[in-house]
């Protein structure tokens, strides 16, 4: 038995254990922390599957940002807890399958849904050809016509362009719907719930240049190695949230027009590319000319990074922030 196999077995065992504990956790805070550690284990698993791009995205979005959003939601639940008293609060925060809230019928429905999804997934996996690399060969054959050197970036921003386009659309829709829920038009006037202190301000001030460097580096890296718009965008989002949280100028100080513009920049840039390619005489829609594709992809990536960073940080700030009266 070699060491890597041993490591994989431990990793799978840890994933199963954490997810089991997560589902059985009695309070929401514990469940949130377990969810974050589940995300970290999952990104380790992606690294073991030799998918560093997904591992980076999972660690940043799945563990980092989703964790922040969940913690923000948890904090939003807390004040009501205090008002209602100790007994009620522990009841309200309990994820207990026996309590009347979910109900037997709901549980049955959930189990049926999850069970059939699992069965479908299993069938799909069994249906895959046992040997062969799928579309990998095709991707590598067309890589030199894509304008970038990294196969994942080539697929995301050239071969399967519209998937990424729609993903950015989903992000914009998420930001708009949380605006509706919070009944707001923009982020202005939103402040962190606690007054930031000197230590945090200084720390963030020191870290910001490093984070800007990392954003640019990740963006540039996407051309030929794991990295790119999503990873860079998440680091940008983290930076904006930290700046906001420590009381510095952040996206909350942007004017409404500027904020909206950066919110939709990525989606709009891709829409523009789609319109131009569709109206060009000798090109098919979403087909980039070889000599232009590198530049087009770079422009889209820059806009997408900005949008992803702004959307994700807006989501976090909208769920964490409070209006000062």
């Amino acid at each position: 038995m070699n060491l890597t196999l041993l490591f994989d077995v431990f990793l799978i065992a840890a994933l199963l254990l954490v997810s089991w504990r997560l589902l059985g956790a009695s309070d929401l805070f514990q469940a949130t922390v377990l969810f974050i550690s589940f995300g970290l284990f999952l990104s380790l698993a992606w690294i073991r599957l030799q998918a560093p791009d997904i591992a980076l995205a999972e660690a940043a979005v799945g563990a980092g940002l989703a964790g922040v959003l969940l913690l923000g939601t948890f904090k939003g639940l807390e004040p009501e807890e205090d008002r209602e008293g100790e007994n009620l609060s522990s009841e309200a925060c309990r994820l207990d399958p026996i309590s009347p809230c979910p109900g037997r019928a709901h549980l049955l429905l959930a189990f049926t849904f999850v069970g059939s999804m699992t069965a479908l997934l299993l069938l799909a996996v069994l249906d895959l050809p046992a040997e062969g690399d799928g579309l990998t060969l095709l991707v590598f054959q067309s890589l030199d016509r894509s304008g970038v050197e990294h196969p994942v970036t080539a697929v995301l921003l050239n071969f399967r362009f519209y998937d990424t386009w729609l993903e950015l659309g989903v992000l914009v829709a998420a930001a708009l719907s949380i605006l509706c829920v919070r009944n707001r038009l923009d982020l202005r006037e939103l402040r962190p719930s606690k007054v930031p202190d000197v230590m945090l301000r200084r720390l963030v001030m020191g870290l910001t240049p490093i984070m800007i460097l990392v954003v640019v580096y990740l963006l540039w890296l996407g051309d030929h190695a794991p990295g790119g718009a999503f990873q860079a965008g998440v680091v940008l989002a983290a930076m904006l949230i930290l700046l906001w949280f420590s009381g510095h100028a952040s996206i909350t100080s942007l004017s409404r027009i500027l904020w909206l513009f950066s919110l939709i920049a990525g989606f709009a840039m891709m829409l523009l590319a789609a319109v131009i390619t569709a109206s060009w005489p000798e090109m098919r829609p979403l087909e980039f000319a070889e000599e232009w594709s590198g530049a087009i992809i770079l422009a889209i990536e820059v806009a997408a990074t900005l949008s992803i960073g702004v959307v994700l940080s807006s989501l976090a700030i909208l769920s964490l922030g409070a209006v000062e009266d």
Binding site: M199, L200, L203, G206, L207, I210
Partner: peptide
């Protein structure tokens, strides 16, 4: 060094 800065600050907070 970055991990040092981060962990000691988080420890402080």
């Amino acid at each position: 060094l970055l991990a040092l800065v981060a962990s000691s600050s988080i420890c402080f907070f």
